[in-house]
Structures are given as structure tokens and as C-alpha cells.
Simulated assay, not measured.
Amino acid sequence: MDVLYTAVATANGRDGRAVSSDGRLDLALAFPPALGGNGEGTNPEQLFAAGYAACFASALGLAGQQAKADTKDASVTAEVGIGPEGESFGLTVTLRVELPEDLQGPIGKQLVERAHELCPYSKATRGNITVELVVE
């Protein structure tokens, strides 16, 4: 693969900070209340959800271009769950894709499935975690 861009960020744990090398991202991190924390910062699951949603929305745009379908009014919401899995923890993802009315039905489902094939986050998670696609 010919790498076009590399993002660099440093974190010092779930109760600390995450900072990107260019300083554009500088966030307090905290465990969510559901995991015993105070919730006074973001957490890795929220960051993963935001990144996955943005990436999948871009992949949906590419799928739309390929199919000559207008997806500019579509939106993607990623729900990232964390819970015990064996001796450690695992993740689950639900991607809720809201499509314009004219893309409802089989064409919308095909576009979402194609986006799932194209999205780098989907490729990275394929076979590793459960990803559910919901077309709304």
C-alpha cells in the first residue's frame, strides 16, 4: 500500500489526555460512568465511533458515486459497545445509516453493503468484531 497520510496521536490511558501530533486534537480522557468513571472526558469508544461514522459516510459517498446515486443527505451514526469478552474486553459496532427517501429499499441496502466493502474501518474490523448494518 502506498500510504498517503499518517495520523499520529499519543495517549496516556483512559484517565488522561489524547493529543495529536499537530495539536488539532487535544482531549481529556475519562472512563464513562458505565465503566466506573466520572465521565468528565471523552473515551476511546466515542473516538472510535466518531472516526468510524465519518469514514463510513465517506465510503457511502464513494459507493453512491459508483452507482450514480446521490448520498449527500445521508448520515451515519456509529454505536460502539464495550464489554467483557473472555479474559479481557471486546467491542461491537452498530452502524445506523439514515438515507434519503429516494434511496430507501433495495438500492439503499446495496449502497450500504458496498460502503461496508470500501470503508477502511470496516476492512480493519472485518472478522474481528461484530458490525451490524442498520439502514434507516
Rank of each mutant, 00 (worst) to 15 (best):
residue 39 G to D: 12
residue 21 S to F: 02
residue 3 V to M: 12
residue 83 G to F: 10
residue 24 R to Y: 07
residue 97 V to S: 09
residue 62 L to Y: 06
residue 136 E to I: 15
residue 86 G to Q: 10
residue 107 I to R: 12
residue 17 R to I: 00
residue 62 L to P: 00
residue 43 N to S: 13
residue 98 E to H: 14
residue 131 V to Q: 02
residue 102 D to R: 09
residue 37 G to Y: 04
residue 66 Q to I: 05
residue 60 L to M: 13
residue 9 A to R: 00
residue 135 V to Q: 13
residue 46 Q to R: 10
residue 17 R to S: 11
residue 70 D to E: 13
residue 91 L to F: 14
residue 136 E to Y: 07
residue 135 V to S: 10
residue 57 A to P: 00
residue 71 T to N: 09
residue 94 T to W: 03
residue 99 L to E: 01
residue 125 T to C: 01
residue 112 V to P: 02
residue 35 L to T: 09
residue 79 E to L: 14
residue 56 F to V: 10
residue 67 A to M: 12
residue 102 D to P: 03
residue 8 V to G: 00
residue 126 R to S: 03
residue 97 V to Y: 03
residue 73 D to Y: 05
residue 89 F to W: 14
residue 127 G to N: 10
residue 21 S to E: 15
residue 90 G to R: 09
residue 40 E to R: 15
residue 57 A to R: 15
residue 103 L to I: 13
residue 46 Q to C: 07
residue 86 G to D: 11
residue 56 F to L: 11
residue 101 E to L: 12
residue 118 L to K: 08
residue 35 L to A: 15
residue 1 M to C: 10
residue 29 L to V: 02
residue 61 G to S: 13
residue 112 V to D: 05
residue 7 A to M: 00
residue 42 T to F: 08
residue 72 K to Q: 12
residue 79 E to Y: 12
residue 67 A to L: 08
residue 92 T to I: 10
residue 90 G to I: 08
residue 87 E to A: 15
residue 54 A to N: 03
residue 47 L to G: 04
residue 124 A to K: 06
residue 63 A to Q: 07
residue 55 C to S: 08
residue 49 A to V: 01
residue 47 L to R: 06
residue 50 A to E: 04
residue 105 G to Q: 06
residue 83 G to E: 09
residue 41 G to P: 11
residue 57 A to M: 06
residue 101 E to G: 06
residue 107 I to A: 15
residue 1 M to R: 14
residue 27 L to H: 13
residue 28 A to H: 03
residue 60 L to Q: 08
residue 104 Q to C: 07
residue 15 D to M: 07
residue 48 F to S: 02
residue 12 N to G: 06
residue 123 K to E: 10
residue 68 K to M: 12
residue 95 L to Q: 05
residue 29 L to F: 09
residue 87 E to W: 01
residue 104 Q to D: 13
residue 126 R to Q: 13
residue 64 G to S: 13
residue 65 Q to F: 02
residue 97 V to P: 03
residue 133 L to V: 12
residue 26 D to R: 06
residue 126 R to A: 13
residue 50 A to K: 00
residue 20 S to Y: 09
residue 82 I to C: 09
residue 111 L to Q: 05
residue 136 E to A: 15
residue 122 S to K: 07
residue 126 R to I: 02
residue 47 L to W: 08
residue 100 P to V: 11
residue 92 T to V: 05
residue 41 G to R: 06
residue 18 A to M: 13
residue 10 T to Q: 14
residue 71 T to E: 10
residue 52 Y to F: 14
residue 111 L to M: 06
residue 128 N to R: 07
residue 38 N to L: 08
residue 50 A to C: 07
residue 87 E to Y: 04
residue 136 E to C: 13
residue 26 D to H: 06
residue 129 I to R: 04
residue 3 V to C: 01
residue 6 T to E: 15
residue 32 P to V: 08
residue 82 I to A: 11
residue 2 D to R: 14
residue 109 K to V: 07
residue 59 A to D: 08
residue 23 G to S: 14
residue 101 E to P: 04
residue 10 T to F: 05
residue 136 E to P: 15
residue 36 G to W: 09
residue 25 L to P: 05
residue 134 V to Y: 05
residue 73 D to M: 10
residue 54 A to H: 03
residue 30 A to M: 06
residue 80 V to A: 03
residue 89 F to C: 08
residue 133 L to N: 14
residue 111 L to K: 02
